[in-house]
Simulated scan of single mutants.
Amino acid sequence: MNIMISNTSNLAIYEQIVEQIKDAIIKQEIKPDEPLPSIRSLARDLQISVITTSRSYEELEAEGLIYALPGKGFYVKPYKRELIKEKKLQLLEGQMSELIRQCKSANLSKEDMITMIHLLYDN
């Protein structure tokens, strides 16, 4: 698993970590019951605060995606991959709905939007 932090992202650093770990779980880069990097080592690798990495793990644990074993670290919960994928699809549907609304307000036809998607998707 390779986490990259972007200073130009609209997401907070802890949210970027959460999203990238979710993506790694969906893509099966991290398997169920596989350990995540320790909070301290992740903070060191990313050159960020331990508080930030701790918040990321707390968020993932609150969502039921990871679990902690005291003294051993954090692990991916089994069978949550499809749930994460469904949540991501819901988020994308909301974003696409907003994009469609904006395209309609700019008087773009469905065909114009589809053409734009094809051009951007292939880049």
Rank of each mutant, 00 (worst) to 15 (best):
I51P: 00
S6R: 11
L42Q: 12
D45G: 00
G94F: 02
A12D: 08
M4G: 00
S41A: 02
A43T: 06
N2K: 13
P70K: 14
E82S: 12
M113V: 14
G73A: 01
T8N: 09
I25V: 13
S56D: 04
S38Y: 07
L119V: 06
K88D: 09
R101P: 00
S109P: 06
P70W: 05
Y121Q: 13
Q20Y: 11
P70D: 11
K85A: 12
E19V: 09
V50T: 12
H118P: 00
A62F: 08
K85W: 07
M1A: 11
A12I: 00
S97G: 10
N123K: 14
I100A: 11
A62Y: 09
E19K: 13
A106L: 13
E59M: 10
N7I: 03
I26Q: 10
N7W: 04
K27Y: 14
L108G: 07
L65S: 07
P35V: 04
A68E: 08
S105W: 03
K88L: 15
M4P: 00
M4E: 10
T52C: 12
P37C: 01
K87I: 05
T115C: 03
A24F: 03
I51A: 12
K80R: 15
K31W: 02
T8S: 11
L92C: 08
S6D: 08
Q47H: 07
Q95L: 10
L119Y: 10
E98P: 00
L91A: 12
I100K: 07
E59V: 13
Y14A: 05
K72A: 05
I30A: 05
I30N: 06
E61W: 01
E58G: 00
E63Q: 15
G94H: 04
L89Y: 11
D45A: 02
L69Y: 02
D112G: 05
I21S: 03
M113W: 03
S97K: 15
F74V: 02
E58C: 03
M113D: 00
E29N: 13
D33A: 04
